[in-house]
């Protein structure tokens, strides 16, 4: 049974039909690279998986648990699905360590000392063990994004969603974040990432999913697809990126 199972998923924003029947299975430990032009529905698809967007039709299951289309009690689901955003979205009034600890303390009711230890371990994992007490505005963009990754990991999610997590970074800071993601992939964490970093997608991804006008237009092994796109749309998309 797939860890994430998506079946005939439809989503509208008003009269705009944004997801037009998405079928996607993601196995435990897979790294999925989601690519496609702006407006093709990548973010929307990602956000339905942790309930940040509702959907109109179809079925989503995460770890055997079904998400209902207009579910409001998403607490159980969201403990299984972590998310990292393009704009980091760190809590500016909390230090890096407090950002990482917040949900483990409040949602998981972890004792203070355990939460501190876990937060330190997570910061170590992203190479920021010495930034526990730093506030977000004292960190570079790359460091902030790594704290955001540590914050998501502290909840020990079954799957991590990443929406263009390097797009807001200065070019020289992209690699430090990608290096962290590469390590996570090597550890076997299940990842679904929307990305414009094609080289990274090819190198780290287990499966490439190309979205086009609200549909999965083509998907499969990244190496094969990049070398040999089956549709003119993917061919032209790859051409436009390189």
């Amino acid at each position: 049974m797939a860890l994430v199972h998506i079946d005939a998923l439809h989503k509208h924003f008003g009269s705009n039909h944004v997801l037009k029947g998405i079928d996607l299975d993601i196995e435990e430990g897979q790294v999925i690279a989601l690519i496609g032009r702006s407006g093709s529905g990548k973010s929307t698809l990602l956000r339905t998986i942790n309930g940040l967007e509702s959907f109109d039709e179809g079925r989503i299951e995460v770890d055997g648990e079904r998400i209902h289309p207009h579910e409001t009690d998403l607490r159980a689901l969201r403990q299984k699905v972590g998310m990292v955003f393009q704009q980091f979205n760190l809590f500016p009034h909390l230090s890096a360590g407090q950002n990482v600890m917040l949900a483990t303390r409040i949602v998981k009711k972890m004792p203070e000392q355990d939460a501190v230890d876990l937060a330190k371990a997570m910061l170590l994992k992203v190479g920021l063990q010495d930034k526990f007490d730093a506030y977000p505005d004292q960190l570079s963009g790359g460091q902030q994004q790594r704290v955001a990754i540590a914050r998501a990991l502290a909840m020990q999610p079954r799957v991590l969603l990443c929406d263009e997590i390097t797009s807001a970074l200065d070019p020289e800071l992209v690699n430090e974040v990608l290096a962290v993601v590469r390590n996570l992939a090597a550890e076997g964490i299940t990842l679904i990432m929307v990305t414009h970093e094609m080289r990274f997608a090819r190198e780290v991804g287990d499966k490439l999913v190309f979205m086009y006008q609200g549909r999965i237009h083509e998907s499969g092994d990244p190496q094969t697809l990049f070398a040999n796109p089956q549709t003119p749309e993917l061919a032209s998309f790859i051409g436009s990126i390189n």
Partner: peptide, 23 residues
């Protein structure tokens, strides 16, 4: 307060009241 603060705290499984109180 930027929308991203709501989204980040929601995706960490905080309830509405917890989001208000802590974030």
């Amino acid at each position: 307060v930027p929308k991203g603060q709501w989204e980040a705290s929601a995706s960490l499984a905080l309830t509405h009241v917890e989001q208000m109180r802590h974030v």
